[in-house]
């Protein structure tokens, strides 16, 4: 009887696969987000330096924004395929705190789970790009360095650029820290 019980236990343990609460480490997302970070930081630095010139206007940089949007969209699509588009669902307490600072429910989806959270993190990175564009296009204004004097043109002020990058990098690092933890878990 003892042998049978033990044999059954071994069978159960052998059959037992590893638990997986989050999507596995994905080097494409890891490398992609690193490249994205480099590109957006370079663009923002350049824009801050060019504020007040024609080269620093929103219109002159639309192509750069489009390129960044394509990069982040690609990563979102990849994460979406892995999570089957179920969305990100977190513990009640966390969602309740988020609800206090957000006008609409941001994370919770009916059928969501932790598998969808990588996608959510990437969507938040994209939202930061949209807001940066919004600032550049309409909120920040600089005096044009070229004539006519006193004309206001769209720009990204150096101070704005620095602040926006600190915040954007925080969102990017959130993706990064998660992918690194997954990678370390796989290697450990």
């Amino acid at each position: 009887m003892k042998r049978l019980t033990l044999a059954l236990m071994v069978l159960m343990l052998s059959a037992c696969v590893s638990v997986e609460y989050v999507t596995p480490y994905d080097p494409v997302i890891d490398n992609g987000i690193r490249e994205y970070k480099e590109s957006i930081n370079t663009l923002a630095k350049n824009l801050g330096d060019q504020a007040g010139t024609e080269a620093g206007t929103y219109e002159a940089n639309l192509a750069h924004y489009n390129a960044l949007e394509s990069k982040i969209d690609l990563l979102i699509e990849r994460a979406n395929l892995q999570s089957a588009g179920r969305g990100c669902r977190l513990a009640e307490g966390i969602s309740a705190q988020l609800a206090k600072v957000a006008p609409e429910p941001m994370i919770q989806t009916e059928e969501g789970d932790s598998y969808g959270c990588t996608e959510r993190l990437l969507v938040l990175v994209k939202d930061q790009l949209d807001l940066l564009q919004n600032i550049h296009q309409s909120a920040d204004k600089c005096n044009a360095m070229a004539s006519p004097r006193g004309t206001k043109i769209s720009c990204l002020r150096a101070t704005t650029s620095k602040a926006a990058m600190k915040i954007t990098n925080q969102s990017i690092n959130a993706v990064w820290v998660v992918e690194t933890a997954k990678k370390n878990g796989d290697n450990g």
Partner: peptide
Amino acid sequence: LLLQMQRNATEGVLVAVSTLTLIAVQN
């Protein structure tokens, strides 16, 4: 608009923290 960005970043940190906890449990 920067504050709105900060709110997004805060959500990202909270999602990351939750996911890190799950990864620790999973490991």
